[in-house]
Amino acid sequence: MSDAGGPLYFEDLEPGSKQSFGSYKVTREEVIEFASKYDPQPFHLSDEAAKQTYFGRLSASGWHTGSMVMRMLVDNMENNRQAGLGSPGIDELRWLKPVYPGDTLRVETEIVDKTPSKSRPDMGSFRSRLTVFNQDDVAVMTMKSIGLIRRRPTDD
Rank of each mutant, 00 (worst) to 15 (best):
M1R: 13
M1Y: 12
M1S: 15
S2G: 10
S2A: 15
G6E: 13
P7W: 01
Y9V: 07
Y9L: 07
L13K: 02
E14A: 15
K18S: 12
Q19M: 15
Q19T: 14
F21C: 08
Y24I: 04
K25Q: 14
V26H: 01
T27P: 01
T27N: 05
T27I: 06
E29N: 10
V31I: 06
I32K: 10
E33C: 04
F34H: 08
F34K: 08
F34L: 08
S36D: 09
Y38F: 15
Y38T: 07
P40G: 11
P40C: 09
P40M: 09
P40A: 12
P40D: 12
H44C: 00
S46Y: 13
A49R: 06
K51T: 03
F55Y: 08
G56Y: 03
G56S: 01
L58T: 00
S59R: 02
S59G: 06
G62Q: 03
G66V: 05
G66D: 05
S67Y: 01
M68Q: 06
V69D: 03
V69G: 01
L73N: 03
V74Q: 03
N76E: 13
N76S: 15
M77E: 05
E78N: 12
E78V: 11
N79I: 12
N80A: 06
R81S: 14
A83S: 03
G86R: 14
G86W: 14
I90N: 01
I90F: 07
I90C: 04
D91E: 11
E92N: 10
L93V: 15
R94M: 09
W95I: 00
P98K: 04
P98N: 05
V99L: 07
Y100C: 04
P101I: 07
D103E: 10
D103P: 02
T104R: 08
L105F: 02
V107P: 04
V107L: 08
V107F: 02
E108C: 11
E108S: 08
T109P: 03
E110L: 13
K114M: 06
T115I: 12
P116C: 12
P116T: 13
K118C: 10
S119R: 13
D122L: 05
G124N: 03
S125M: 11
F126V: 09
F126A: 09
R127M: 08
R127P: 00
R127I: 12
S128A: 15
R129Q: 14
R129L: 15
L130E: 01
T131S: 14
T131V: 15
T131I: 14
V132F: 00
N134K: 01
N134V: 04
Q135L: 09
Q135G: 08
D137A: 11
A139P: 13
A139N: 10
A139L: 10
V140R: 01
V140M: 04
V140K: 02
T142I: 04
T142K: 05
K144Y: 07
S145C: 14
I146A: 11
G147M: 03
I149D: 02
I149Q: 01
R150W: 04
R152A: 08
P153S: 11
